[in-house]
């Protein structure tokens, strides 16, 4: 079977400092993969290389067997890649609904239409509302992002990515800064995502995401240290050394 995401020998240096050294990673379709590692392990850099925000020095990134390194970010998105950001990257003066509509527009041909009335596009707005309902924000869809709580914004990030119906979804610390209650909500949302979506999730805090993962990759100083099933990685002495031992 073709892997959903296949990263091989990816390398990236900033100035003289290596941020990613020779990372290889294979994620099968439908898999739930957790990437863990202490701060500065190069987790977000890895995502930026996959999405095209950064250009690697060497290596390859394939989505369902197709090489993506030469493609600009937006084309990778059109091939089925979506991501959320660890540092919230939203449109703060717009409503939640408008945020999701922009996400839907990104994949919709009508985005080039300079004539139609956007607010009259039922199809887009219905889909956007559905995505907000999916993450439990249906009630406040008309609220401006600037007036929502941090937890609500985290879920909006998720709604924007899910609305695009991606094949591969990259989640950058979706649980960071959330209360217990909110974490449960996000986990429920994630559990409800159908299996035809492959999910790769970064988490700094291992405990909160452990239950979700089937396979875990441990990154440290831009390198893959351990990879395996949840039980294997937790049991591995190197995990304890670089991560749990801290």
């Amino acid at each position: 079977m073709t892997p959903a995401l296949e990263i091989s020998h990816l390398k990236k240096r900033f100035g003289g400092l290596p941020a990613t050294r020779d990372v290889s990673l294979t994620v099968m379709p439908g898999e739930r993969r957790l990437i863990i590692g202490p701060n500065g392990a190069g987790k977000t850099t890895l995502f930026n290389l996959v999405t095209g925000d950064l250009t690697p020095d060497e290596g390859s990134v394939k989505l369902f067997g197709r090489e993506m390194l030469k493609l600009p970010t937006q084309q990778r998105v059109h091939l089925g890649l979506a991501r959320t950001y660890q540092i919230l990257t939203l449109f703060p003066k717009e409503t939640l609904l408008h945020n999701v509509v922009l996400a839907l527009l990104g994949l919709d041909r009508s985005r080039w239409n300079p004539w139609a009335y956007l607010a009259g596009q039922r199809r887009l707005y219905d889909a956007a509302r559905a995505a907000l309902v999916q993450v439990g924000l249906g009630e406040i869809a008309e609220r401006v992002v600037g007036e929502t709580s941090y937890g609500e914004r985290r879920r909006l990030e998720m709604a924007m990515a899910l609305a695009q119906k991606p094949k591969v979804l990259l989640l950058d610390e979706p649980l960071a800064g959330l209360s217990q209650e909110e974490r449960k909500q996000v986990r429920d949302v994630l559990n409800a995502v159908p299996r035809d979506v492959t999910i790769v999730m970064i988490e700094h805090d291992m405990d909160s995401a452990l239950a979700f993962a089937e396979r875990i990759t441990l990154l440290h100083y831009g390198e893959v240290i351990v990879e395996g099933t949840r039980a294997e990685v937790v049991a591995d002495p190197r995990t304890k050394e670089v991560y749990l031992g801290e």
Partner: peptide, 22 residues
């Protein structure tokens, strides 16, 4: 229009807009 919304989105968050497929 949708294009107008995309233009304003690109003004506010160009990086995010790319990641949304724009």
């Amino acid at each position: 229009s949708p294009f107008g919304a995309a233009l304003q989105g690109a003004r506010d968050q160009p990086r995010r807009m790319r990641m949304l497929g724009h």
